[in-house]
Design a protein around this nucleic acid. Structure first.
Length: 145
DNA sequence: GCCAACGTTGGC
DNA sequence: GCCAACGTTGGC
């Protein structure tokens, strides 16, 4: 029996890497994470896990859903002196949020007061509980898996 | 090993 | 453009 699927949220500045690019590329290595908590979260991802794709800074909203296409492996984008120190995963675009869920919406709802996005605003890779996932999907009109 | 200074991120 | 939060660095 398959273990329960885990859910995540990954952040990207659209200036650096946007949802449109993710969609255009299909599968894309999720590199550049340089935070130990975020790294631990990457390491815990399993192939098939789903994640929200969040635009930080510009938009500040959940714009789509991606799936873990390849589990954590050494980030090839690291500087030579820290080779092997950081991890990345491959993310596959699943689909766009019919109605992007904004940070303002999330903050306005007390149910999300425990969400890492609210509590630790600088963390770029974070887990999302099944309850939060369901509710965010509902808010965004997401009908997929 | 503590803590102040500094840099970076991200919301406003 | 400013500021708050947080991580990292370096002096002691």
């Amino acid at each position: 029996m398959a273990p329960a699927r885990q859910y995540w949220l990954v952040k990207s500045e659209p200036d650096a890497f946007s949802w449109d690019q993710q969609v255009a590329n299909g599968v894309e290595p999720w590199t550049g994470v340089r935070n130990h908590m975020a790294k631990a979260n990457l390491a815990a991802m399993k192939k098939g896990d789903l994640a929200f794709f969040y635009h930080s800074n510009i938009g500040k909203e959940i714009v789509g859903v991606v799936e873990v296409a390849k589990e954590a492996y050494p980030d090839p984008s690291v500087e030579p002196d820290t080779k092997g120190a950081w991890l990345c995963v491959d993310m596959k675009a699943v689909g766009p949020m019919p109605k992007p869920v904004t940070l303002a919406e999330i903050k306005a709802d007390p149910d999300f007061s425990e969400l890492a996005l609210v509590r630790m605003s600088r963390l770029s890779v974070m887990p999302v509980s099944a309850e939060h996932w369901k509710k965010l999907c509902k808010l965004g009109g997401w009908k997929g898996k």
